[in-house]
Design a protein around this nucleic acid. Structure first.
Lengths: 351, 351
DNA sequence: ACGAGGAGTGGGAGCGCTCCCACAGTACTC
DNA sequence: GAGTACTGTGGGAGCGCTCCCACTCCTCGT
């Protein structure tokens, strides 16, 4: 009953002893440093396998000051409003990319202001190497605050046209244009739109795309054909009623989300307008909802999972640069990366 | 330019110096130990505020061997199949409960066998204090393996009637019974069902509930009215076609998920059967899909978010017990907790 | 022949905490 | 008046890593 009782998990030290090398060598071998002889590497590998050694993450983080974890922040309010598959797809992309890089995902749903504060606190506790931010509102100060903390950040979507913080967005303007071009191509000329709340850039961009699309199709814009809602089904319903009242002659509707389109569809049915014969309908998101609607909804697809992947790739890149530059005082600081991914129209029976 | 340059974040030591007390006292004050005088507590609080001190998580984890983080594991394949809002709701519940306890959520989507292995690796790296497991299959060995690692586990759903590992499930048998009782109450007597894959307990339980419901309504069971699918829309479609062929006289269908119900609804329409006049339809999940279907789908609601909360509460409890017992060799080990939460029928126009 | 330089290595010195032991001070008891 | 029992407190000893310096061999060049 002597010596080191292997009560807990094995440590670096024990691996070193078994492999017959020093601690430093084991550390280097495990972290893939080139400064290790083949023999040493093999001896370490054997010892690791035999002991079932796994490096202790806390010790690593403490000594090396990197956590190999990344936070993804999702505002809870948004999570309810947005068509639900959105965030799952995003998470899927982020998770896939992180797994490849052998990093962990810390998911934070932020509900209240108090939780927001607490979240900033966590960041200060150095639990993560970087932050991904989903669906920020126009006036959200969080991105800047995190950046000021010295933590790399990448956002999904942007707060305005000229966003200073790194972001990955989908081509929302293109989405609006594509929808209108499609409707115009089907011979529609009284094309209405149900927009999202205008304090969100995504809503303004889609509306801008709608207007650009009209111009390109040579259709005179008419403000009575523009209604604003809040991305909810109920909002879509209200907006549709308003539109029917203001412009009963409309023959097409571009809704800035599938869920609002679903609301609108209900109102159209109640009003006795057939889809697509009387009114053509196009949404955005290409969600499950779109596929299951009757008739199935034509919708502009965003590459959500791909956005998740791209964000993550950018973030990991920033993290890597940061740790390299580090003492170099980060003079260059470089450009904040921006990516705008293309959208695609998925034509179904509603148009 | 002398003394300690406060280059990085402040440490415990600096707080102690400023407060004029020892390191131990600061640690005790911060962790809410009762063995601290009021004055000391206040001095520490002031110093913490002044310096903006936040404890370093890695150091804490290393010294105290607890991470204040919990992993939630979701098999990726399931995430695609299940009606999507399910996991978001679950995450929401887990996240809310963890936030209250000031713990972090590590989300892991497991795609491949390789990622599974890697995940077990992470567990061994002592990154989390416990594990939540979502939607386990009948023969999944993961729960037992984790338990054997000495980590507390709670599952969402169970693998069989007699599940040895702690779990939180919804009353799937009750769901089936309620659906059938409702349909029978509406005067239907040729009630069919579209079941999930029978290697999943949840599918067997709902099917069992269906049978129990028939018995209670005094309806003779008929195996030609039972079809098995895989929880997908396409599966629901195929199963519905099969049912119409085998039992053209059916007047109601209980689908074990909303998504399958949506598939079935399409087939019914193609076959010229009106819902609910000719065939009444009931699903399970009460998802967005159900609300948006035409007609809106009657569905059995599961308290998903509440399941997430309950799982988390149970897990945190286990973690607390574990750290308390610890040296006590955990002789009692106690009963593994189990919870079965009630479901509720939401009646809409499809029945 | 000898020194310069690189490859490979061992191990000390932390990283910032928690745990725990020792000890001072105060408040009792008999 | 000396013992006993607390409450508070300071600070040493780690936790298991990474970083880095110092050291030993080589292999070259001249």
């Amino acid at each position: 009953m002597s010596g080191r009782q292997s009560g807990g998990r094995p440590t670096l030290e024990e691996v070193a002893a078994l492999a017959g090398v020093g601690r430093g060598t084991v550390s280097r071998a495990i972290n893939g440093s080139p400064r290790v002889s083949r023999q040493a590497k093999e001896a370490v590998a054997r010892a690791v396998a035999e002991l079932g050694y796994v490096p202790n993450q806390a010790a690593r983080a403490l000594a090396g000051s990197r956590t190999d974890a990344v936070a993804l922040v999702i505002p809870e309010t948004e999570a309810r409003i947005f068509s639900e598959p959105y965030f799952l797809d995003l998470i899927r992309g982020v998770s896939a990319e992180l797994a490849e890089a052998d990093k962990q995902l810390l998911l934070t749903l932020v509900r209240t202001e108090a939780e927001r504060q607490r979240f900033e606190h966590y960041l200060a506790a150095q639990r993560v190497d970087g932050v991904l931010l989903a669906s920020v509102h126009g006036d959200d100060p969080l991105p800047d605050r995190i950046a000021r903390l010295g933590l790399p950040v990448v956002m999904n979507g942007r707060r305005s046209e000229a966003e200073p913080v790194a972001y990955v967005d989908s081509d929302n303007i293109g989405a609006g244009r594509a929808a209108v071009a499609h409707l115009a191509g089907r011979g529609r000329s009284r094309i209405a739109t149900i927009s999202g709340p205008l304090d969100m850039y995504v809503a303004r961009a889609r509306l801008g795309g709608y207007r650009a699309g009209l111009a390109e199709a040579g259709i005179k814009p008419d403000e009575s054909l523009v209604a604003t809602a809040d991305f909810t089904e109920e909002g879509g319903r209200l907006a549709m009623r308003e539109l029917l009242e203001r412009a009963p002659g409309l023959d097409a509707v571009f809704a800035a989300s599938d869920v609002m389109a679903a609301g609108a569809r209900g109102v159209l049915r109640e009003a006795g307008r057939r889809v697509p014969e009387d009114v053509a309908l196009v949404g955005v998101d290409d969600s499950t909802v779109a596929r299951l609607m009757d008739p199935p909804l034509t919708s502009v697809r965003q590459p959500i999972e791909e956005m998740g992947r791209t964000m993550t790739r950018l973030l990991l890149q920033k993290i890597a640069e940061e740790s390299r530059a580090d003492a170099a005082s980060r003079q260059g600081e470089g450009e904040e990366p921006r990516r705008v991914l293309p959208t695609a129209l998925v034509v179904r029976d509603s148009s």
